[in-house]
């Protein structure tokens, strides 16, 4: 990679998703960069291709589909689309980690939280024996789970939605990834819990200097969290820029329409 400050350089990425019924051209040749330590937001409505973009970088097909990718995804000098499956599997979770919207389906309901994190730690680090559990407890503590030693022995259903999302974030950061992709990480959560999770993500990013790719439909979520925003519409990036610029002077008509539709708490409500 020419520019050493970039960790991700995506050029002309396309993704076609084949479901049982049809083939969808979900991502239509998008290009973007993410610098080391930078947070970039992807905003758009459902079906705009923002989630598929994230999965394309991870080379994961949405469930029950297959995905055909084109273009290049240059991650720290390697084109991820050229890697073999084994190398890719090794990279996933270790260098690039992902947090999904629904924290329940991403956890194994019959395993304790602790043993699920243990497995990841064992797979991706050199730690062995009791050091593994120590690391697990440390991670749970890091994401703000009270009594981590005891809570490690709980099953997912004993955790609230917000706590489960914290666990997933713990798993995601367990290997100190260079890039964390968060796909609607707070959409299923209550507003106060959402604020907690956003604060947690912000803190972890600052402490670890990791890059963040934040995917959301909510302009409010993206506003305080990222430096740059890419607005997606029908598989394309229609606007890209610093978060201040995009919010203050949206250039694209679609961005303006979206921002205009967002209900705001701080401006006047219903005219009585």
């Amino acid at each position: 990679m020419s520019d050493p400050t970039l960790i991700l350089r995506v050029r002309n990425l396309t993704a076609r998703i084949a479901t049982r019924k049809e083939e969808i051209h979900a991502v239509r040749g998008i290009s973007f960069d993410i610098a080391a330590g930078e947070a970039v937001g992807f905003v758009g409505e459902s079906g705009c291709g923002k989630s598929v973009t994230a999965r394309a970088i991870m080379r994961l097909a949405p469930e029950g589909t297959s995905i055909a990718l084109g273009g290049s995804v240059d991650f720290m000098g390697q084109d991820l689309l050229q890697l073999d499956e084994k190398a890719m599997r090794d990279l996933r979770g270790r260098r690039i980690a992902m947090v999904f919207q629904d924290p329940m389906t991403s956890l194994n309901p019959v395993m304790t939280i602790g043993s699920q994190i243990d497995d990841i730690v064992r797979r991706h680090t050199e730690l062995r024996g009791r050091a593994i559990r120590q690391r697990t407890v440390e991670l749970l503590n890091l994401v703000g789970i009270p009594n981590p030693e005891r809570r490690a022995d709980n099953h997912p259903h004993q955790f609230s939605g917000g706590m489960r999302q914290r666990v997933l974030i713990a798993i995601a950061i367990s290997c100190d990834p260079d890039l964390l992709i968060a796909d609607e990480p707070t959409t299923a959560l209550d507003v106060t819990v959402q604020a907690q999770i956003l604060r947690l993500l912000m803190r972890l990013r600052e402490e670890r200097g990791m890059s963040l790719m934040l995917i959301t439909h909510d302009f409010g979520v993206v506003a305080g969290m990222v430096e740059r925003v890419n607005v997606m519409y029908r598989g394309e990036i229609v606007e890209s820029g610093s978060v201040e610029r995009v919010f203050a002077e949206p250039a694209h008509e679609y961005t303006r329409a979206l921002l205009h539709a967002v209900p705001r708490l701080d401006t006047a409500g219903r005219v009585l």
């Binding site: 994961l60 469930e63 297959s66 055909a68 689309l81 050229q82 890719m88 389906t105």
Partner: peptide, 16 residues
Amino acid sequence: STVRAMVDTAGSQNPP
């Protein structure tokens, strides 16, 4: 270049 990627997530057992 075009790559055919298969599903490889812990959550999904059934192949496409």
